[in-house]
Design a protein around this nucleic acid. Structure first.
Length: 670
RNA sequence: GCGCCCGUAGCUCAGCUGGAUAGAGCGAUUGCCUCCGGAGCAAUAGGCCGGGAGUUCGAAUCUCUCCGGGCGCACCA
């Protein structure tokens, strides 16, 4: 993962500190100096030592440097500022290391089994831009984990028996008057006309939400229909459940198609219907009750419910039995089983997560559901097929869920901990992110009625219930159209098929980059002008840098690999080419290109893909700058030309790989 | 009321475990095609990093507090 030189410097620093000052630092801090003039690495260790040794940091730095020199691969060391130890690499040697791809060496397979859950859209309407952020973040993180050698299963949880699906069933059967056969015909008709079912449901869902509220005197009656329908779905074996199955399955297929346009695939689609029918909850309840995580409330407003104390709600362990607490019932406790005996969402989620960690004691049935060229996405069923892969039983899980759900997520972790699965609880990560909202301007542009109050806000929350938002496929369509227009005008001579493929790669690159460039806890105030931009800090900008590099190799008739290999067989004869003003510029590009693995590691440690997006942009920027200052093909000095070509090659390699981890293709032309 | 997130240039956002002159994109102004394609490059203007206090050799970054904005806290999912 790192350059040999860096490892060597760290080891030597550690040895010096131990021998000379008798301190054993946990980690040797190595930073990247703000300016190349300070060298390639800088260590602030002298500052820490200064306090402990009551000695001036500069003095310590000098002493350390005296012991550092000489060090293989390094040219010199010096004290700078208040006591930094700055290290300068032997650039020509380091160049060889980078050209060989030393720091890119594939990491060893960790063997651990990681599970990432993302997307998880209610299968009752079209996916919107908020879902896109979720799926793109999740998919990118999966790519990062796999790049780091993890074995990852991707799951997309399908809540096919929840209120949202129930609402659509109510809309079809009560509002529209369809029966089961009628719904089947409707689905077939829409498909025959090439209409998107999820779009049809988008409008229907907004209408039924309105219907519940519209007539005051009928409100209770309509809510009653909804509740009854929900129970019918949970029980199964009736027409309402059959309609739900029909619609949710068809909408799910649409969601998978939408995501496939963005290169997003899943391994397993666990459904809530199986969690119910296979009675996952019964097993979870046994464990929860036996371990005293749940208790039956006998007093107060939660009387008759099985509840769980909330995390951080005082001393749950101490009293042992919170119900007998002299202070009275814990009214703030989380209800897991209602007084009517039904299980809440959190309860089902606890059972599901016990399965994820392989400690439930029961498995799903599996059946193939959706084909991706050479592989299959499996779905849960009650009985399943005999021959199937096994999912679940993960060592670590990541749940990509927006930050609004952090409370229920915390409840699940608390339950795991209460059951004694502290290892599992410690490897449960809520991969949280903020929502995508619309700017008031964007809402008006789309023709929505915006209240005066909303107009004053920085952004307005998207709402599927109100039908307020930008549908994922609409955005993708618009982006492809915009890219297509550009490609058509730039490459009229290319075949329509090729132009279309390039336009798609650019559009997807722009969309994925747009969703990834914001850090997770920043709310995205969506605006078409920004999303549709292909200039500046965008995916196409990075793609374009790759295209430029490739154009050079095409014209030169050289392969990038050969340009790099040339530095391995014959090291740079004139190290001076890497020094001076021009040399610094070139060397800076190499250094940035070599940081890819470091960035990958950082992205995983902080569950933040945005760092990689930023990094690829910065590298592309450095390269574009380099491209304008150094004209490669007309370079007369052969040794210098060899260096310039290799520079383009190392950038091309690094960018293509980084983009691949982001799920962004690098076109041959654009 | 309690919890979580945010407040950095006109706008949208970066700023890694506190560290060397606070960065980028967009927008504005001005340049750059005898050149590997300009989806590009260069330059200029623009910031008491929301206010205050504290910790530290050193704070945009950590702690407290106040102000402003967002989102959660249901026998909904």
């Amino acid at each position: 993962m790192y350059l040999e030189q860096q490892k060597r410097l760290e080891a030597r620093l550690r040895a010096i500190l131990e021998r000379k000052y008798d301190v054993v630092p946990e980690k040797i801090a190595l930073e990247q100096p703000p300016n190349l003039a300070f060298g390639e690495f800088a260590s602030p260790v002298a500052f820490d030592l200064a306090r402990r040794l009551k000695k001036a940091p500069r003095k310590i730095a000098e002493e350390v440097i005296a012991e550092l020199t000489p060090l293989e691969g390094f040219q010199s060391f010096e004290v700078a500022g208040a006591g930094y130890i700055n290290a300068k690499l032997n650039r020509a040697t380091a160049l060889g290391s980078i050209a060989r791809g030393e720091e890119l060496a594939a990491p060893a397979e960790t063997g651990s089994h990681v599970l990432v859950e993302h997307t998880s859209i209610n299968p009752n309407k079209a996916a919107h831009i908020g879902h896109l952020r979720n799926a793109i973040l999740g998919d990118t993180f999966v790519r990062l984990l796999r790049a780091a050698g993890e074995r990852v299963d991707v799951q997309n949880y399908i809540d096919n028996t929840g209120v949202q699906v129930a609402d659509i069933v109510v809309a079809l059967m009560h509002l529209e008057g369809y029966d089961l056969a009628g719904v089947a015909r409707l689905v077939a008709d829409l498909a025959a006309r090439g209409e998107r079912l999820d779009y049809f449901c988008w409008n229907l869902y907004a209408r039924v939400s309105e219907w519940y509220e519209s007539a005051a005197e009928l409100k209770d009656e309509r809510k009653e229909i909804r509740l009854r329908t929900l129970h019918e779905l949970e029980q199964g074996g009736n027409d309402a459940a059959a309609v739900a199955e029909l619609i949710s399955t068809a909408v799910l297929r649409r969601h998978l198609e939408t995501m496939e346009r963005l290169g997003i695939e899943y391994d397993f689609l666990p459904r809530e219907s199986e969690i119910l029918h296979l009675k996952f909850w019964d097993l979870a309840f046994e464990q929860l009750r036996a371990k005293g995580v749940l208790y039956l409330e006998t007093e107060g407003k939660n009387r008759g419910c099985w509840v769980m104390p909330r995390a951080g709600a005082g001393r749950p362990d101490e009293a042992g039995d919170a119900a007998s607490d002299p202070a009275g019932p814990d009214e703030d406790a989380k209800i897991i089983v209602r007084s009517n005996g039904t299980v809440t969402y959190v309860g089902k989620d606890i059972a599901y997560h016990l399965w994820k960690f392989g400690v439930l004691g029961r498995d799903f049935g599996y059946a193939p559901f959706y084909r991706y060229g050479d592989r299959e996405a499996w779905i849960s069923t009650e009985h399943g097929v005999a021959d199937h892969p096994h999912f679940g039983g993960a060592a670590a899980i990541y749940n990509v869920i927006d930050s609004r759900q952090s409370d229920p997520q915390a409840n699940v972790v608390e339950a795991l901990r209460g059951l004694g699965f502290s290892e599992a609880a410690a490897h449960y990560t809520h991969f949280s992110y903020e929502m995508v909202a619309l700017t008031p301007r964007c809402a008006l542009e789309l023709g929505y009625a915006v209240t005066e109050e909303d107009r004053q806000r920085p952004y307005i929350e998207v709402s599927g219930r109100k039908g307020f938002g930008v549908k994922a496929d609409d955005l993708i369509d618009r982006m492809i159209a915009a890219a297509q227009e550009e490609v058509d005008s730039r490459h009229p001579a290319r075949s329509p098929q090729e132009r279309e493929r390039i336009a798609q790669e650019i559009a997807i690159g722009a969309l994925r980059y747009f969703m990834l460039k914001y850090t997770r806890n920043s709310v995205i105030a969506f605006d078409f002008a920004e999303a549709l931009s292909f200039e500046g800090e965008t995916g196409p900008y990075v793609q374009y840098a790759v295209v430029r590099a490739r154009n050079i190799f095409r014209k030169a008739g050289v392969e990038p690999e050969a340009a790099l290999a040339s530095l391995e067989t014959a090291p740079l004869a004139e190290p001076a080419l890497l020094h001076g003003e021009q040399g610094d510029e070139i060397w800076e590009v190499w250094l940035a290109a070599s940081k890819l693995s470091l960035v990958l590691e950082q992205c995983i440690a902080t569950t933040e893909p945005a760092y990689l997006a930023k990094h690829t942009f910065q590298l592309a920027q450095l390269f574009n700058n380099f491209y304008h200052r150094h004209h490669i093909l007309t370079e007369q000095d052969p040794e210098r030309k060899r260096l310039l070509l290799a520079t383009a090659a190392v950038v091309e390699r690094s960018l293509v790989r980084g983009l691949d981890w982001l799920g962004i293709a690098a076109p041959e032309r654009m």
